[in-house]
């Protein structure tokens, strides 16, 4: 579905991604771990073409995204991204937040996208809140709406950037539960997260970014129980044990 080949990214003179190579299969869930500043957000933003990579290649459905003839807006409609800070549109109610993309980017008819949006809202447990504005929702609810907004575009793959980091600990669960459901339904996802237990439970594979290098990519259980790289061992030893 998505292949990253030797991706390099620099900001000014500083290299933030040092040759990242990773492949994401359809229906696969990969969790991306790494300390703060290791480059997780940058990697996700590069895949969604919000940042331009300096070297290497990103192949999406057999096509290089670096090709100049690529329509960037079109690509973004197939690759959803959800941010740590939700970034909902504050002037639109929940329903309009979700339907804006399908209606104005995909040009689909209003009645159709609205009924889909209502169904989505039901699925994320916010069926009764469609008329509310973002500032009337809790952080967890806002983040679920942000996920629904991305899903409404029916993307082929969903990128999630620490979507629970800005949340009150009591609200983290509801968002992770939603992601687990999506994983069970076969949504292809690349998830940057600090939630170890979640990664272990939900991810098919787990990857560790260390200072811009992808040091280990392994099936979830293997990653946590018998990591092969010293950086992984070090990283796992420094995070508090969940459970």
């Amino acid at each position: 579905m998505i292949e990253l080949h030797n991706v390099h990214k620099q900001f000014d003179q500083r290299t933030v991604l040092h040759g990242v190579t990773l492949e994401l299969q359809p229906h696969e869930v990969v969790c991306l771990l790494g300390t703060s500043g290791s480059g997780k957000s940058t990697l996700l933003r590069c895949i969604n073409l919000l940042d331009r990579i300096d070297q290497g290649d990103i192949i999406f459905q057999g096509q290089s995204l670096l090709d100049d003839r690529i329509d960037v807006d079109l690509v973004r409609r197939h690759i959803g991204i959800v941010f740590q800070a939700f970034n909902l549109f504050p002037h639109l109610n929940v329903l309009d937040n979700i339907t804006l993309g399908p209606q104005r980017a995909l040009g689909r008819p209003k009645h159709e996208v609205e009924s889909e949006a209502r169904e989505l809202l039901g699925r994320i447990g916010l069926g009764t809140r469609s008329g509310d504005y973002p500032d009337q929702l809790s952080g967890g609810q806002q983040q679920r709406v942000a996920i629904a907004r991305a899903l409404a575009m029916q993307p082929d793959v969903l990128l999630l950037d620490e979507v629970t980091s800005a949340l009150d600990p009591t609200l983290v669960g509801e968002v992770l539960d939603l992601l687990s459901d999506l994983a069970l339904q076969g949504t292809t996802m690349l998830i940057a997260t600090h939630e170890m237990q979640f990664a272990r439970d939900v991810a098919h594979r787990v990857a560790l970014l260390d200072a811009g290098r992808l040091v280990e990519v392994a099936p979830a259980q293997q990653f946590f129980d018998s990591p092969s790289q010293p950086e992984t061992v070090d990283f796992l030893s420094r995070v508090p044990k969940t459970q």
Partner: peptide
């Protein structure tokens, strides 16, 4: 800017971003 990023992330083109995301908030 995060509003612009969010709009571009759902594939809205520049004109649509201006019209449906930026201007309504700017006018307010």
């Amino acid at each position: 800017t995060n509003q612009l990023v969010a709009a571009r992330a759902i594939g809205l083109r520049q004109g649509a971003t201006m019209r449906y995301v930026v201007l309504p908030q700017a006018v307010r």
